[in-house]
């Protein structure tokens, strides 16, 4: 054994394992992983897969917090594994679980079907007020108009906000923070004209009204998207839309 290897520290990872073929329900498996100061939790998982147990399943891609694939519960908190460094975690075993509130497919892999359906449902594209031909020129926008929605366009669909949201846990039909950030990204865009169309999706308990402003979704967001803001400012819009219909001459 080389001197460097002998000096290597090890850390215990407690990983929630689940195989749909052999396991009735998930249970923890424990791994001792050699680590260095520059090692992320993702690298620790890759070390396990490469050297200790090749059957460990988890999603990852970019390793630099832009793809949103490696979200998981690390010590009980939803985080990107690539963006969480072992040196910054408290000493002692590190607990790694799949994202809360999502069905587990296998080990750390969860179902994203429901989330993708929600994203698709909010018309996540610009629907112009008045379509222009190419000859009419581009849809113009000032920098100030862009700032109005820009932070919401930073979402990487990592679903950490859903894992942090207890109301989504209680009501899986709740549209949730991520899809609302996507909705507000387009409803806040000066070039868009489909605000009413999207607003009609979010009335009721499965719309914005499951939210009780817990706010942890925004705390855990690795991109500072502030999805809680997207949900809560649309409560006002939803309420206004409800009451304005009683005004004489309101078109419904």
């Amino acid at each position: 054994m080389s001197e460097a290897a002998a000096l290597m520290k090890t850390v215990e990872l407690r990983v929630l394992r689940y195989s749909p073929v052999t396991d009735e329900k998930p249970s923890f498996g424990s791994f001792q992983v050699p680590w260095t100061d520059d090692m992320s939790v993702l690298q620790a998982l890759q070390t396990i897969k490469d050297t200790l147990d090749g059957t460990l399943s988890f999603r990852w891609s970019c390793r630099m917090a832009v793809c949103g694939s490696c979200g998981m519960m690390i010590n009980g908190k939803p985080q990107l594994a690539c963006n969480t460094f072992i040196r910054n975690l408290p000493k002692g075993p590190i607990t790694v679980e799949p994202l809360n509130h999502f069905p587990i497919e296998r080990d750390l892999v969860v179902s994203v079907d429901d989330f993708v359906k929600k994203i698709e449902s909010v018309y996540p594209y610009i629907i112009p007020k008045k379509p222009k031909s190419v000859a009419d020129g581009p849809y113009l926008q000032t920098p100030a108009q862009m700032v109005a929605y820009e932070s919401f366009s930073d979402c990487i669909n990592c679903m950490l906000c859903y894992a942090a949201c207890p109301q989504f846990g209680e009501n899986p039909e709740f549209i949730g923070p991520g899809a609302m950030a996507m909705l507000q990204r387009y409803n806040g865009d000066s070039r868009d004209g489909a605000q009413k169309l999207r607003l009609d999706l979010i009335h009721g308990e499965d719309g914005v009204w499951s939210c009780t402003a817990v706010g942890v979704c925004s705390d855990v967001c690795p991109k500072h998207v502030d999805p809680a803001n997207a949900v809560n400012q649309n409560k006002t819009n939803s309420a206004l839309d409800f009451f304005l219909r009683f005004l004489p001459g309101a078109a419904r």
Binding site: V147, A213, A228, N229, Q233
Partner: peptide
């Protein structure tokens, strides 16, 4: 700040 639309002053949030 989480419950209101963003406030933009001089082109900045």
């Amino acid at each position: 700040p989480k419950t209101q639309p963003k406030i933009i002053v001089n082109g900045k949030q």
